[in-house]
Structures are given as C-alpha cells and as structure tokens.
Design a protein around this nucleic acid. Structure first.
Lengths: 270, 270
DNA sequence: GAGTGGTCTAGACCACTGA
DNA sequence: CAGTGGTCTAGACCACTCG
C-alpha cells in the first residue's frame, strides 16, 4: 500500500492533506488553528497530552510502538518518528528490548541533573543539603511575574545550602506556586532521598521538563557571605533559573549563588 | 527486496553483519576496532571524513540524498538518517527544495553564534570590536596542554574588547595554534566583516564545531578593570572556552571576562 | 517541470531483554 | 521463546525552489 493516497479505511490523503485527521481519535475538531502539520507531529502532540494528563506516570512504560500505531491508525514508522523527537527532548526514554518509558527525575543516578556545577579537580563528590527555611508568603511582584501568577498569590519559598566535602558552595532561594505545592514542608524536603525534582514529581505531580538560566557575577552580600563562609564582597556566580513543565508553563524560580573558588559552571556549546 | 538478507549485488547481510562492508568504498579495512556499528553510522563517518577533507566546503551543497545513496550503495533512507544526525549536530544544514549544505559561520545572520551574552533589556544591539593585540609567542604550559600542543610550540595570542552601545563589556584573550593560523594579523582581524569563526574558516580552513565552557565569578584585576571601565575588584564573569573541530580536536582556547552589570549569560537546560 | 528534501507506509531482519 | 526497540529497504506522494 502506498502512503498518502491510501485507499483503505477512514484516512483520506493521510499526510499533509487532512489537518483534522478523522483517524486521530480523540482529537478535537475545534482547534481553530489551520495547523498544517505532519502526521507525526500530531501523534507527538497526542502523546504529550497523555503525558500531561498522567495517563502514563513518570518511570512507567508507555504502550509499545505497535500498540500506539494501532491506536492512532498510522504506521509504526510514524509513531517511531514522534517518539524519536520526544526522546531527544528528554520526555521519554527508550530502552531496547524493554520498551519506552516516561522520563523521571526520581530514579536518577546522579543527584542533580540540572546542576551544572563541577569540581575543578574533576572528582564527583556527593552533596550535603541543608534546608534553612521553608515558608509560605504572598509573591513579590517580580517573582509573581516570572511564575505567571497574579500578584498576591501565595508562593512557597525555600532556602537551602549545598555543601561539597563539608564546605558550603551553593546558596539557593527557590520559589514555587503555592497552588501546586500544597503541603510542602522543610521536613518533607529534608527526609526525601534523591533529587528535589523527584519529590516534586511523586508528591505534587509536577514534572520539570526544561529550564532557562541567566548567569551573572555579583559581590556577596553580608548574608550570603556568612552562609557560604566567605568575606563580604567576594565574587559569586549568580544563577537565576526558571523551570518549565509541559507547554512551557513556568513552575519554579530559583536564584542561586555559587562559590566558584574551587568549582565551575560547565556548559557545552554547539 | 527485503533489507538485511539482500540477495543482489556485493553487499552480503547489509546491516550489522558486516562491519567492513565492501560496498562502502574507500573505507579502510585496517580499523583495529571490532566496531559493530549500524550502516548509517558508517555512512555518517564517511560524510564527516569528506567534510574534514574539504571535499565540500562550508556553505556549499553536498550531493543529493539519491546521489549519496548510489555512491554508498545503500538506500536513501539510510543516507537520510546519517544526514539527519549530522544536521542536528550542526555540521550540515538542510534546506527543503534546495539541498543539503555544509554549515558555515561565514554567512550567519547573527554576529555571534557562540556568544551567549544577552542584554538585560532584551534589545539585540550590535557589537563593536576593538583588537588590542595580536602576537606570536611560545605557548605557556597551561595553554599548550589545553590545545594539545608540545610545550614550546608557537601560538597566536589575540586580545580584544567587545563593546555594546559604546561601552566595553567583554575582554577576550584568545590562543590559537601557530601551525594552523600562519599569517593571522591584527589587521586581518580588524578588516574582516562578520564573525571571527567565519574568517578562520575561509582563510585558514579551520571550522569550529562545538565548544566547552567553564564559568566562574572573579574579581577584576587592574588591567581588566581599566579596559572595561570598572573599579578594580568588581565582580566579572570568567568564561574559559575550548573550541573543537572535527573529531574533537581542540583548536582554540579563549578566556573571556564579561561585565554582567547590564548583560547576562543565558543558558538553556534540558 | 525537474530536482530537492520531507513524510508515510509496509515489511523484513537484527539486537536486546526477561520470563 | 515472545516481545520490544533498532536498522534497513523500496516505493509512493507531498512541499518547496528555481529556471
């Protein structure tokens, strides 16, 4: 059977011809966009929708390529291309012989997937976490703006220090939408083993997908200097991170101060 | 015709069976690695070899997928997958209806593809370049080590300042292997319009593929402070970049100091 | 209209996993 | 062993570019 000029079944002119493909069950016809997208992009969107709706949870396997192909009434190759892209975007993880799984922060080998800090000597070294503060408050206007909240909405603010080899290196201030993180306490944070984003997933159903960072050099103020064991005025790396979940919805703002005396922020350009 | 169990021609058991595929003309059999790689990976390696050997130059079109498929005696789909990966690695650029082209720094829209600096207000703003120095010298040991040179080898050292809206923001020290950059002068650098990496391509045949950066916060020393119009001790972003060409060979070391008072280094995590 | 890359299909076989 | 993802092929049609 040839591709686009399919004679069989309920899918006339598969590929580009029918943006509101009747074979794509469950796809609402009310999308006002004329949206002229390839089939595999539509499949991709459907999969993302299922991920967002928690039809398959982080760490679980999604249906096999064959099953999905049958469900969406397309060929395995088309499903494959959709999954390929979701896999390079780190939403899914393929494991040959086993299946395709929803990516998760909870079963990470490394403690911090998003922390780009490395020791100058290259040694991995484990981090100790110390939570200084965890409180609820009305979002300051800049925080509210970044998180796309109404001014006056509640946020959870967390302050913590990360230490390597018993010396403090990172001071983080973290703001989270109060609406999404009901019941988050310093105790919960302290008890949880593994990456913080793993806790967010399992306890609050919030999955961090990607993040944008803005980096500066600043002078340490009195509080930061004290917490990091430095002289006031010492140069620190300021890292402001906005974390996003599905559909680029912002769900975390983080302001970090890194002591880069014996560590550095590593980055890869291409 | 089915795939792997091909009956025709000179390619027995195409896919995984024959690592030293006789159809892959020009491929030396002396690779000692047992190398059990998929066909498309082998094709990819052959294309990279042609790029490195300048069979097709930056900006030029490479042969069409059909032609390459014929040359390598594989299907178009296999060539396609190889090109797909080279395209996401930014070695090639596909243009629908026109062809596939060798990526180049010379015809960039933006002046700086690798410079991650952005103005806080979001305005693009053009950069002014000022070259302070360009000399040849014996590589200091740390530079030699980073560039994989023998100690005592010659390097070209360039110092320059970038300004935005007439105020200096970036001070760069750049080291290049003297062997590769014979005849590079401050004059050439000043005269060239467009990104420096474009000049490296067209005049020296050196193409930057990717780079690794290490970022720190430091205090401005007297020289840097003077050149950037700051007080000594002011916090600066220190960015050490190692640029690599084909096969991850290092070809440039760069140490930059960024004034992040009204600019920031932006980064994307995923 | 010819040539290019882009999408889609159908079907084969391979490599890996785990019962 | 059956089931999964991974590779490869052959062939069709679509969308875009340019002469």
């Amino acid at each position: 059977m040839d591709a686009a000029g399919s004679l069989c079944c309920n899918r006339p002119m598969a590929a580009h011809a029918s943006p509101s493909n009747p074979a794509l069950a469950g796809r609402p016809a009310d999308t006002d966009a004329p949206a002229f997208s390839p089939l595999y992009q539509q499949i991709k969107a459907l999969i993302v929708r299922s991920l967002q709706g928690a039809e398959w949870k982080p760490g679980e396997a999604i249906p096999s390529e064959m099953e999905l192909a049958a469900r969406f009434k397309v060929s395995q190759g088309t499903v494959r291309k959709a999954i390929d892209e979701l896999s390079t975007e780190n939403l899914l993880v393929r494991r040959q012989g086993k299946g395709t799984f929803v990516a998760t922060h909870a079963e990470q080998k490394v403690q911090f997937r998003f922390l780009r800090l490395a020791a100058d000597d290259g040694e991995p070294a484990e981090a100790q976490r110390r939570f200084i503060d965890c409180r609820r408050l009305r979002a300051p206007s800049d925080i509210a703006r970044a998180l796309n909240l109404k001014s006056g909405d509640t946020v959870v603010q967390v302050r913590r220090v990360l230490s390597f080899r018993a010396s403090p290196v990172v001071l983080d201030d973290i703001w989270l939408p109060g609406q999404l993180f009901k019941g988050l306490t310093a105790e919960k944070l302290s008890e949880y083993r593994g990456p913080m984003y793993g806790l967010f997933e399992t306890d609050f159903g919030v999955r961090m997908i990607r993040a944008e960072e803005k980096i500066r050099a600043v002078a340490a103020d009195a509080v930061a200097a004290q917490l990091l064991g430095l002289a006031p005025g010492a140069p620190l790396l300021s890292v402001e991170r906005l974390s996003l979940t599905y559909h680029d919805r912002p769900v975390e703002l983080r302001r970090g101060l890194y002591n880069t005396t014996s560590h550095h922020y590593r980055n890869e350009l291409s």
